[in-house]
């Protein structure tokens, strides 16, 4: 997560492309996967299915990490463009914090829906 801040220039450009392409394939696949689930009555159920069954779970974890990278780079660029210079660092840190909170929240969700617990 820390290395996100060093993701600039061509590295950011490359990761943005990689994540975009990955998500391009992952998202329809995920939609199909969910559509064919036998029971889709709750979020826990969906997340549980996405993460804990067969190899699709690995695909989902990779997707989330790439989504995080994609969101960081895209959001950061927008902030650099639009936020006044003297408040930029503050806003970038807030955004960074937001991504950490979302990640933590998601982790909690994942742990809570673990069917093996």
């Amino acid at each position: 997560m820390l290395s996100l801040k060093r993701l600039t220039g061509s590295k950011a450009h490359i990761w943005q492309r990689i994540s975009a392409v990955y998500l391009l394939f992952y998202v329809p696949l995920m939609a199909l996967y969910i559509a064919f689930l036998p029971e889709t009555n709750s979020l826990e159920n969906i997340v549980g299915n996405l993460l804990y069954y067969c190899f699709f779970g690995y695909l989902s974890i990779v997707a989330y990490l790439l989504l995080l990278v994609h969101a960081w780079i895209g959001g950061r660029d927008i902030l650099i463009d639009y936020i006044p210079r003297n408040r930029l660092t503050l806003w970038l840190n807030l955004y960074y914090l937001l991504l950490i909170v979302v990640t933590a929240d998601l982790l909690a969700l994942i742990v809570s829906v673990n069917p093996y617990l």
Binding site: T8, G9, S10, A12, H13, D77, I80
Partner: peptide, 9 residues
């Protein structure tokens, strides 16, 4: 030029 504020801006 390989910086966020250079070519990739």
């Amino acid at each position: 030029l390989d910086k966020a504020e250079k070519a990739f801006r």
